[in-house]
């Protein structure tokens, strides 16, 4: 699996650290909405298909990347920096559920 880092170019997956599901939204640090915190920590969409996820190029430029990868084929359709990027959220906001 190759991930094309926007800064470094195509690199082997061993240079990257998986940071998990990129759909989760961290509640405001002052929030006392337990359901929102629980959902953030424990609940996952886990789709079979395109998955919005975070990888860090820890063996390279150390940037955090927002990657859309197909969990059935491992095909990567987009890579972008997390910072300044607003990838389409594919799940409801945790606050809406609470």
């Amino acid at each position: 699996m190759l991930i094309t880092c926007p800064y470094c170019g195509p690199r082997d997956v061993i240079e990257f650290t998986y940071q998990g599901d990129g759909n989760r939204e961290r509640p405001d640090p002052a929030s006392q909405n337990f359901e929102a915190w629980n959902a953030y920590v424990y609940d996952r969409l886990n789709p079979a298909g395109d998955h919005n996820e975070i990888w860090q190029h820890s063996g390279g430029c150390r940037a955090h990347l927002r990657v859309v990868r197909n969990t059935l084929t491992h095909e990567i359709s987009s890579v972008a920096f997390v910072r300044g990027d607003h990838a389409p959220a594919t799940r409801r906001k945790a606050e809406d559920k609470a």
Binding site: G20, D43, R91, R92
Partner: peptide, 17 residues
């Protein structure tokens, strides 16, 4: 599990495949 539970309308689970 995630796929089957989504058929039942349960969107998220404390599980990753």
């Amino acid at each position: 599990t995630g796929r089957v539970m989504q058929l039942a309308g349960i969107e998220t689970m404390p599980i990753e495949s």
